[in-house]
Design a binder for these strands. Structure first.
Length: 425
RNA sequence: GGAAAGAUGGCAGAGUGGUCGAUUGCAGCGGUCUUGAAAACCGCCGUACUGAGAGGUACCGGGGGUUCGAAUCCCUCUCUUUCCGCCA
């Protein structure tokens, strides 16, 4: 969430920038926050003064009792009753203001960075750059990956339906080994780029869900183990970022660079059609995530390094790709700026999103209470960033489709040492 | 699943009703000494809100209660540890 201080000090700027996200009630909500805050402050002044009086009176009673002046002590005691009433009233008024402010702040999205393009949806995203070359298929018609998966017995979607349900594929043989190979390749690449590998829990508690913002807004997207009130992670971002919840880092520890492989679980309620065919959208999938925590001064440099890292991955895999700078309307609630990576899937003839790299600036850190102490001892909110590096299913889809030949599928060279085979046929 | 113990500042660990926001040790920061370092010694060293500042207020796992006054007593929830049982 945005900080109260920034909102109250930059009212007009906040309203203007929220406009880019097409957040309609911005002005109304911001003004309400400012009104509530003014009220909260004056209430607190009153309350503090009253409590100071009360504290003093209590102390004097103690002194009187010790001095044996019982009558005077009792007299003072009688006075405390009315103080108590007033304190109680002021306290509840302040709690009310505070709660209302927090509720409002949770409903206000992050401010888009000034370099985020205007726009309403996917069609307004700006192509930052493109790379790789599209494959040419000579003498045969390329098959979509779900047919290739069946033809070479790599992935069994029906079996997943039997065991669990749609969106839970079963990988078999070289299909399963390709999963392991990609995970190891991505982790090794991240380590070479200086990221510390983390193996996090795949199930988190409520506090962690709130920390990264999955709760309360995206509650329906997570699988919820109600007997224990735990949530299956939709991404390793959740457990990894929550490592830094309620933590004050030292500036010399920044930037924090973590990477983690995890299975990811998403309910994807409401999805249907060609978007969910095959590997395009799953309820369970594998992903390697990179997470960075940095100073505000350095976070955009960090963002660029992350983009370069992800770009090197798709390059090494030899996939045609493009990088999109998302427009205000297509960005997530919590993001200040997001770059999407898409790879081109030749047989489906469409772009598939394989990574999303974002800077949340201090929006997530404020909720997490993730701060750092600089050399002068000043405590400031960190900036948090994360990105997929990479999500497997659509990468697999693109590899299968783009690398197919008339009689098999070529494995990208960088993966051969990880797979132990260079061809599926 | 059964039983017990516990939750205090970055960590360890005192504190059982009245200058306790909290003794002490370690770590950290500054200084003296030293060519430099170590050791020793001296000082500083939680967070948030509020205030121009001095200062004020809140916080000892969360919530509620008793009391003029709660880290300390009571209730409740959550979590952790240990033992037993089961078990990859």
């Amino acid at each position: 969430m945005l900080t109260l201080k920034f909102i109250t000090e930059n009212r007009d700027e906040v309203v203007r920038r929220l406009g880019k996200k097409h957040f309609k009630p911005a002005a109304e909500m911001i003004d309400r926050v400012i009104t509530l805050d003014t009220d909260r402050r004056s209430t607190q002044k009153e309350l503090d003064a009253k409590q100071a009086q009360m504290n003093q009176l209590s102390k004097s009673i103690g002194a009187l009792m010790q001095a044996g002046k019982k009558d005077e002590a009792n007299e003072a005691k009688a006075k405390t009753a009315e103080y108590k009433e007033e304190i109680k009233a002021l306290q509840s008024r302040m709690d009310e203001s505070e709660n209302s402010i927090r509720d409002l702040l949770l409903q206000i999205p992050n401010l888009p960075n000034e370099t985020v393009p205007d726009g309403y949806g996917a069609e307004d995203n700006k192509v930052e750059r493109m790379g790789g070359t599209n494959p040419v298929f000579e003498g045969f018609k390329p098959l979509p990956h779900w047919e290739l998966a069946k033809k070479y017995d790599l992935i069994d979607f029906e079996l997943g339906v039997k065991i669990t349900g749609a969106g839970f594929p079963v990988y078999k043989g070289k299909g399963a080994r390709l999963q392991r190979a990609l995970i190891n390749f991505f982790l090794d690449e991240a380590r070479d780029a200086g990221y510390l590998e983390i193996e996090p829990p795949y199930v988190v508690n409520e506090a962690s869900g709130y920390g990264t913002g999955q709760l309360p807004d995206k509650e329906g997207q997570m699988y919820h183990a109600t007997a224990d009130n735990l949530y299956l992670i939709p991404t390793a971002e959740v457990p990894v970022t929550n490592i830094y919840r309620d933590v004050i880092l030292s500036e010399k520890d920044l930037p924090v660079k973590n990477c983690a492989y995890s299975a990811c679980f998403r309910r994807e309620a409401g999805s249907y059609g060609k978007d969910v065919r095959g590997l395009n959208r799953l309820h369970q999938f594998n992903k390697v995530e990179i997470v960075r925590i940095d100073t505000p001064e350095h976070s955009y440099e960090s963002l660029n390094e992350m983009i370069a890292h992800v770009e090197s991955l798709v390059n090494k895999l030899g996939l045609p790709y493009r990088i999109l700078r998302l427009c205000g309307g297509d960005m997530s609630f919590t993001s200040a700026i997001t770059f999407d990576f898409e790879v081109y899937s030749a047989a489906q003839e469409r772009w598939l999103e394989v990574s999303s790299v974002s800077n949340f600036e201090s929006y997530q850190a404020n909720r997490l209470k993730c701060r750092y102490r600089n050399a002068d001892g000043k405590i400031t909110l960190c900036h948090t960033l994360n990105g997929s590096a990479l999500a497997l299913p659509r990468i697999v889809a693109a590899i299968l489709e783009n690398n197919q030949t008339a009689d098999g599928i070529r494995i990208p060279e960088v993966l051969v040492p990880y797979c132990g085979f260079d061809f599926i046929g």
